[in-house]
Design a protein around this nucleic acid. Structure first.
Lengths: 106, 106
DNA sequence: ATACTATTTGGCGATATTGCAAAATAGGAT
DNA sequence: ATCCTATTTTGCAATATCGCCAAATAGTAT
């Protein structure tokens, strides 16, 4: 798939692709605060349970989240705090885009 | 599109989605070293010029790259050094995944 | 003007993603 | 065992992405 066959790039792009969806990014930020189960996330997102579960499995395949089973519930948590750093590090870019957008309006 | 309508999340996911492709990630890392034009990148990637150009326009729409025109050539560069930090910050996660993969083989 | 190169854009088929619904699976309680 | 809830998996239709080709656009030179 694709022309770049560098394993590190493949790994990175899988992770970034998993993060590149609004619902999954929302999930990441929610469970970064506090681990949550599917039904809790489903409530906050407002999508079908199966949809949420599928997003979670994509995050899991990318290694972004861990699970802990408690009875029938499955609690999802961040596997690495570095994911928060990754997201946070983009703040300057967003500010730059806003600045440029304002300048463009003048 | 989607159920999450938080503007910040939308903005972030557009950026991360743009980064979430091997060819585009490769481009980002190339021009982080030194700005390059389409034909240079096309050589290093080995894809059609139009394919590379389209990837570049996705990166541009996400605000990740800037352009500078010199004659008929268009040089692309990183718009913000924070993009490199973003990628670098995922190193611990990749190491964690490798560690777990090795443990899994035992 | 033509010729040449660099880049972008439009079209198109192949493939992948998304989200809901229904069915399957798993665990706890009665 | 049945019942109930939580979760995952499967199926499917709608949509989006990808990569090549061809055509259009832009800039330089003759």
């Amino acid at each position: 798939m694709g022309t770049i066959d560098n394993p590190r790039i493949q790994e990175l792009s899988q992770i970034l692709k998993a993060l590149g969806h609004p619902t999954r990014l929302f999930i990441i930020e929610e469970i970064a605060q506090k681990p949550a189960c599917v039904c809790e996330l489903k409530e906050r997102i407002g999508a079908d349970t199966s949809t949420v579960s599928k997003h979670l499995s994509i995050l899991r395949q990318a290694g972004l989240v861990d699970i802990e089973k408690k009875g029938t519930m499955v609690y999802y948590s961040l596997s690495c705090a570095c994911v928060q750093s990754c997201i946070q590090s983009l703040t300057p870019l967003i500010e730059l885009k806003h600045k440029r957008y304002c300048e463009m309006l003048e």
